[in-house]
Every structure is written in C-alpha cells, then in structure tokens.
Design a protein around this nucleic acid. Structure first.
Length: 277
DNA sequence: CGGAATGCGATG
DNA sequence: CATCGCATTCCG
C-alpha cells in the first residue's frame, strides 16, 4: 500500500466513526485534478502578488479551499487540520513589524467542524502554525488570520520550536536573499501512530512536509523537506529531498502553476548551491 | 550572547 | 477574556 492509500485509509477510518453529516472534503487524489481551478486572490494581496500563483498545488474538486490575505489553505473536514497551506513570501514582507490578535480562532470561511482550543489544551501537543505568524507581520489582519485553525496542526512542542522552526527561518532567509520564495507545507498522516486530540479527534500528524520554489535570474530551483513530528533534533540537509520525493509522500502535485515544460526538471533534482544548507 | 520566535498558562 | 510574563530554542 502506498502512502497516498494509507492516508486515505487513515482518514476513512477516522471519518467513518466521528463525522456524520460533515461534508466530505476528501483526501487528495491525483485523478480528479481540474486543470485550473480558479482561486480568488484576496484584494489586499493583489497589488503585491505576482501571477500566476506558483505556490499552489493542483486543486482537486473535492477540496475545501480557503483564501486569506496571507495564505491559501486546503482544509480537511475529517482530520480537522489542513491538507496544505501555501503562500509567497517576499523580502518586503519579512521586514514587517505589525502584530494582530494572537488568539486561536475558527476559520470563518469554513463550514463544518473545526478543532477546539480545548482539544489541544494540556494535551502535551502544540497548536503549531503552518504559515508562521512571523511571516505575516506586514499586516495586522494577515497576522491574526494565521491563528485560524485552518492553519494549525498538532505538533510536538520541541519539534515546533526546534527542527520545524529551522525550516521557517530558512524560508525567511530565502525571501531576504532572493527577494521572493514560494512555500507550501502541510501534515503527513500515514498510519496516524500518535492518535487524535480531544473529543473532536484532531488528527496528530506523523510528519510534516515543506517545499520551497525560487526564481533566480529567470531560472527556477526547488527543494523539499520532510521532518518527523518528534522532539529529537533533525538536520535540515539530512531531511532535504527533491520535490518529486515529497510529492510521492504527500500525494500532491506541488507548484502546479509552474510551466509544464520545466516542471519535471525543477522538481526532480536539487540545485544544492541555492539553499544554504 | 542578545534578540527573535514559538506557544503556554497564571493572573486579574 | 485580555494581558502579561515565562520557558525554550535557535539565528546571527
């Protein structure tokens, strides 16, 4: 059984015992990809964001996509965590200094069940941001929206402030160095060995993936990272791999807007000198 | 070593 | 519920 199948199986087991009338967002499937599902670009971002949205994976018809000022997310109604969160981070954004509301909230754009703060409370697991709040200091509203549960996953506390944070620092460093970086990340749920949180059964991911795409002098480079949801320190370089390998694990078609003529070349290899790891 | 970034929880 | 401080970790 491959990883995608395992993901589907895990979600089915959980969904079948806990969900009732909740709309089925469905796990990712490579078969129902619509060619170019329209994503509404939040107006606040239109002025500063380039087209197309290179950070986005291919969108399946069954996915529940939410767009906020600073990020796009695919929400999973069975696991109560996102399938992925994607955004572009620019040099100017990294230099922001605004802060907003820091309380975790339900995403107002999502219909159906979401995680409760009580599910996480005293569980021993952090409410870990997918897009870090530090990447949204260019707008108080964008900052606050990062605290929606569409952007939150259960993370081991030491992992959150340790290994995972090094991937976030890497993103900001790339943005400063190259002017812009396209980022997508999310949870990996294989056999769900850590179980669920609280009475709403928020799925605890086994691991997390992240992928970076940059364009330097008209040439694209990409890299992927997968880290286990564990406290032990994990080295960035040792966790790095091609985007193709990440796609194998997460079942997504990443950087789908990247020109098809160069996509396979960009995603199959690692241009090591670009990443500083 | 200082500061940034993370999220928790005590306190009123 | 809002405010504040704390503990931890890592970057520069």
């Amino acid at each position: 059984m491959n990883n995608v199948a395992r993901l589907i199986a895990a979600i089915f087991i959980i969904g079948s015992c806990a969900c009732g009338s909740i709309p089925k967002a469905g796990p990712v499937s490579t078969q129902e990809v619509s060619p170019k599902k329209r994503i509404e670009i939040p107006s606040a971002k239109k002025a500063i964001k380039t087209q197309p949205r290179l950070e986005l994976p291919a969108i399946t018809d069954s996915e529940d996509i939410v767009t906020h000022i600073g990020f796009t997310a695919s929400y999973n109604h069975e696991t109560l965590i996102p399938n992925w969160v994607a955004y572009e981070l620019t040099r100017e954004e990294v230099n922001g200094s605004e802060k907003g509301d820091e309380s975790f909230q339900w995403d107002p754009d999502i219909k159906g069940r979401q995680a409760w703060r009580e599910d996480y409370a005293r569980s021993g697991w952090d409410k870990g941001h997918m897009i870090p709040r530090a990447d949204l200091k260019w707008s108080a509203k964008a900052y606050s929206e990062s605290f929606y549960f569409s952007n939150v996953c259960p993370q081991d506390p030491a992992f959150n402030t340790g290994s995972w944070r090094t991937t976030e620092s890497m993103g900001r460093r790339l943005a400063k160095q190259y002017g812009s970086v396209f980022i997508v990340c999310g949870p990996l749920v294989f056999d769900n060995k850590y179980g669920t949180l609280g009475e709403h059964k928020v799925v605890i991911p086994d691991a997390f993936f992240k992928a970076f795409l940059i364009c330097v002098n008209g040439e694209y480079s990409a890299i992927g990272i997968i880290m286990d949801n564990i406290p032990e320190k994990q080295n960035l370089k040792q966790c790095a791999m091609s985007v193709d390998e990440v796609e194998d694990k997460c079942g997504l078609d990443l950087f789908h807007d990247l020109d098809i003529s160069i996509q396979s070349a960009v995603e199959s290899r690692i241009n090591w000198k670009m990443w500083g790891i």
